[in-house]
Structures are given as structure tokens and as C-alpha cells.
Design a protein around this nucleic acid. Structure first.
Lengths: 125, 125
DNA sequence: ATATCAGTTAGAGTTAACTCCAAGTCAAGC
DNA sequence: GCTTGACTTGGAGTTAACTCTAACTGATAT
């Protein structure tokens, strides 16, 4: 798969793919004899994983650390597991916060709806 | 309340408070005769609201728009309600995504735990 | 009256994560 | 052999959201 093919397939720009490679999220992408990147299905799955974690809020730096551990081989299994478990806990916290914020917005919207009905209230902010 | 007092109370830096004022999130903060900001409880509640929305991911720009509508008075009630409702929907989507990502991490962690037990598996990434 | 200290401003600097650009290369079609 | 078009690189530019700096001011304690 060329860079533009995986770009379309994974909906991520070629520039971003090269950037991810440069900073260590996608190491050792195969090349053709002419020096052109040749992505595998496995690379594609990894890109999907990165995209998913990025959109949940994991930083490039955390993911870089994760893949760096990977490159060091099997003896880092435990460290990788623990890194993921820690990030999972962070997400769990953000999940609860998000839930509360949605509730807060729901309440605020209901206050707006009341004000709109009664036609003469203003809110504090 | 001086800036350092509200800073401690709301756990937000004085620089950030001045920045929020500059970009239009906190307009018309009262001043003493000497020109020093004098925050009210109401300002404090507004700062808490901003903090909550910011940490859920709402941008400064969206919040700026919200408070700008506010300044235009009662006739923008509906527009403000709709702005909040739209952001609420965005958060709802991110909430679901986050839930899926947490599940995905749980699965991945369980795969790690299996690999750690069997002592000889490596994962793909 | 002077030193101290918390506040003020405008504007510069920082960070993360891209995103763009210019100059060059390579394979394929005419 | 030449053009075209997709690729390559290193490095510069962008954006959001702060964060810091320098120079200044005004109230309070000695």
C-alpha cells in the first residue's frame, strides 16, 4: 500500500503518517527499491490503533513510549501492559467528568427552555 | 476578591484569568479605584463554568461566542440555548467514542495478561 | 520617604500536533 | 529522451491555549 492508499483507507493525511513515523509511532515502514513507503495491513491496523488512542486524548509522547517499549521486545510486556492500564484509568476519570459535564449542560439547557417559555427571564451567564 | 484569591479558589492561574478576560470570556470584571481587578462570587461561578467546559473540550472560541451572545442581551436566549445544545451533542458523541476506546483498552490489557501468563507470546503491537 | 509587594500592561515565548513548502527523485506513458 | 505525477526529504509555518517577561504603578509597613 502506498502512502496515499493508506491515507485514504485510514482517513489520515500523508503528512501526518510521515510525521508519526518521524517521531517513532510507526517505525520501520517497508520501502520499495525506489525508496517509496510500502505499508502492510499490519501497519494499517497500527495506524487505526494510534488514531483511536489519539482521538481519546492519549498524547503522541505516551504512544511514542509505548512503541519504544515494543521495539525493546518481549521483556517489556509488563511495562507495556502497565502503561496501557494507567492510560485506561486516566480515560476512566475523563469519562466520568464528561458524564457530569453533559448532565450540567442538560440542566443549563432546561433552564434556558424555561426562560424561553416565560419570555421575561435572563440568566446569570 | 483579588486575582490571586480567585486564582487559588478556582485553581486557575492569574495569567490565564487575564487571558480569558482579554479574549472575551470574562468581560467587564470590576476594578478598584487603583485599577485592580475585583472579582465577585458571580465571576467565580462563571470561571468554574468555563473551567468545566474547557476540560470537557469546548474551545475558547466557542465559549467566546457564547459570552458574546450574552452581552447582546435577552434577544439571544434562543441562540445561546442552541449553541449549548449543539455542544452537548458533540460531547455525547465523544462520550460514546471514549466508552468504546476504554473497552478496546480493556480488551488489549486482557490480551497482555494472557501473554504474561503463558510466558512466551508476543503481540503484534 | 522609601522599600516591598501584589497588582497592572503589552507583547514575546512556549508546547503539542500537525501542516505546508521547496527542491529533488523515480517510474510510466508518449 | 522528455514530461507527468506521485513520491521523497529537511525544515519552516501554523494554530490553540496558555505562560512568561519587562517595565511600571499604587497601597502599605517601617
Amino acid at each position: 500500500m502506498t502512502i496515499s492508499e493508506i491515507s485514504k483507507k485510514c482517513n489520515i493525511s500523508p503528512d501526518t503518517l510521515r510525521y508519526y513515523e518521524k517521531v517513532g509511532l510507526l517505525s520501520y515502514v517497508n520501502r520499495t527499491s525506489g525508496g517509496i513507503r510500502n505499508y502492510t495491513e499490519q501497519d494499517c491496523a497500527q495506524v487505526e490503533f494510534i488514531k483511536c488512542m489519539r482521538s481519546a486524548g492519549l498524547s503522541i509522547e505516551i504512544l511514542r513510549r509505548y512503541f519504544e517499549l515494543f521495539r525493546r521486545g518481549k521483556r517489556t510486556l509488563k511495562a507495556r501492559r502497565d502503561l496501557l492500564a494507567k492510560e485506561r484509568e486516566n480515560l476512566q476519570m475523563r469519562f466520568k467528568e464528561l458524564q457530569d459535564t453533559i448532565k450540567r449542560l442538560d440542566y443549563k439547557i432546561s433552564v434556558y427552555d424555561k426562560a424561553l417559555k416565560s419570555k421575561d427571564n435572563e440568566l446569570k451567564f
